[in-house]
C-alpha cells in the first residue's frame, strides 16, 4: 500500500547531546507517555459523556434505594470531583496498579491476566500467518508478474481485502462447523474432556483454526499486495540488476537481495496491524466465544466498568507501543542504512 509512509516514523534529531540509543529510547518513552495520556484522558472524557454509571448498572439489577445507590457511589469514589477521580486513577497507575473492578468484584489485573493469553495468542498467530502467507503470495505473484498465477493471486487478494473479519468468521462457521463439522464453534478447549499435554495442545489448535483464519484474511491480502509491489519496485533497481548480471541464480537474487529490502514496508505494516487487529479480535472473540481481553472491553462498555475498560485500553496500548519499539529495532537489522537516531 502506498499509504504507509515509513519516513515519518523516525524521530527527529534531538538537540541534546545524548548517545543515539538514549535519545531513541527517550523519544519512544515520550511517545508511549503521550499515548497513555490520550487513552486515560479520552476515557475519562467519554465516560463523563456516557449516560448512567456503574452504580446505575449494578442498581438496575438489584432494586436498590436512592440511599443505597449513594452509598455505593461513595464507596466506588464516583461522588468525588472529576479531577480528583482522574488524579486518583493516575496515581494508582504510577504504582503499576490497574485498579479494582467493582462490577467483577476483583482486581482488574486478576481478570485481565486470565484473558490476556487468549487475545495475545490470537494476535500473534494471526500476525505470523498473515505475514508469512501474504508475503509468499506477493513474492510468487511478483516473480510471475503478468501470468495467470499473478492474476489469480491478485483476484484472491482483492476479495480478501474487501471482506470484514466478521463476514469471514460467519462464513467459516457456516461452512466448516455447521455444514462440514470439521472444527468446534466455540471456546478455547473442550473443558469436559479434561485433556492434558499434547492432546490439550491439539484440542486448542482445533479451536483456534477458524478464529485465527478470520483475523488473518484481510491482512494476508494487504501483505500480498504490499510484497508484490515492493518486490517489483526493488527488482527494478540497479543493484538487483547488477546481481543478475553477475550471474547469480534467480532464487538467490530474489531471496537474498530483493526480499530483504522488500520486507521493510511489511515490517512497518506488521507494526500497524497489531493496533488494528485488536479491534477485529472483539468480533472474533464474540463469534467464537473465546474468553479474551477484547470481548471483556466490549462487555465493560455496557457495564460502565470504567476501570476495566481503562485497564484493557492501557494494556493493549502498552503492547502496541512495545511492538512499535520492536519494529524500530527490526528496521536497524534489516536495513543497514537505518540507525537508531
Amino acid at each position: 500500500m502506498s499509504l504507509t509512509d515509513t519516513s515519518a516514523r523516525r524521530a527527529p534529531a534531538a538537540r541534546l547531546a545524548l548517545p543515539p540509543w538514549a535519545r531513541f529510547l527517550l523519544g519512544r518513552l515520550g511517545q508511549a507517555f503521550l499515548v497513555m495520556a490520550l487513552v486515560v484522558i479520552g476515557n475519562f472524557v467519554i465516560m463523563q459523556m456516557a449516560p448512567g454509571d456503574l452504580v446505575t448498572v449494578i442498581a438496575g439489577g438489584a432494586d436498590m434505594t436512592q440511599e443505597q445507590m449513594a452509598d455505593l457511589r461513595a464507596r466506588f469514589g464516583l461522588d468525588l470531583p472529576l479531577l480528583v477521580q482522574f488524579w486518583n486513577y493516575v496515581a494508582q497507575l504510577l504504582t503499576f496498579d490497574l485498579g479494582y473492578s467493582y462490577r467483577m468484584n476483583a482486581p482488574v489485573w486478576e481478570v485481565l491476566s486470565a484473558r490476556l493469553p487468549t487475545t495475545a495468542a490470537l494476535v500473534v498467530l494471526s500476525l505470523l500467518f498473515s505475514v508469512t502467507i501474504g508475503t509468499v503470495m506477493g513474492v510468487v505473484s511478483a516473480r510471475r508478474a503478468g501470468t495467470l498465477t499473478d492474476m489469480g493471486i491478485n483476484a484472491v487478494a482483492l476479495v480478501l481485502y474487501a471482506a470484514p473479519s466478521f463476514v469471514v468468521a460467519m462464513l467459516l462457521v457456516l461452512v466448516f462447523s455447521v455444514k462440514l463439522g470439521w472444527f468446534p464453534i466455540a471456546g478455547l478447549t473442550t473443558v469436559s474432556a479434561g485433556y492434558t499435554g499434547w492432546a490439550l495442545v491439539k484440542d486448542m489448535a482445533a479451536h483456534l483454526v477458524m478464529p485465527v483464519t478470520a483475523l488473518c484474511t484481510f491482512y494476508v491480502a494487504i501483505y500480498a499486495r504490499l510484497a508484490r509491489s515492493t518486490m517489483l519496485e526493488v527488482m527494478d533497481q540497479d543493484y538487483v540488476r547488477t546481481a543478475r548480471a553477475k550471474g547469480l541464480s534467480e532464487t538467490r537474487v530474489i531471496y537474498v537481495h530483493t526480499l530483504r529490502n522488500a520486507l521493510l514496508p511489511i515490517v512497518t505494516m506488521a507494526g500497524l496491524q497489531v493496533s488494528t487487529v485488536l479491534g477485529g479480535a472483539v468480533v472474533v472473540e464474540t463469534v467464537f466465544g473465546l474468553p479474551g481481553m477484547a470481548r471483556t472491553a466490549y462487555d465493560a462498555v455496557f457495564q460502565r466498568d470504567t476501570t476495566m475498560l481503562l485497564g484493557v485500553m492501557f494494556v493493549s496500548s502498552l503492547a502496541i507501543v512495545i511492538v512499535n519499539l520492536a519494529v524500530d529495532l527490526l528496521y536497524t537489522v534489516l536495513d543497514p542504512r537505518v540507525s537508531l537516531k
Binding site: 516514523r9 490520550l38 479491534g279 496500548s317 507501543v321
Partner: peptide
C-alpha cells in the same frame, strides 16, 4: 502518532 497507536476499532466501540 498517539491517535494512530490507539486500537482503532476498539476505540470506536468505546465511543
Amino acid at each position: 502518532d498517539a491517535f494512530q497507536t490507539l486500537p482503532s476499532f476498539l476505540a470506536a466501540i468505546l465511543i
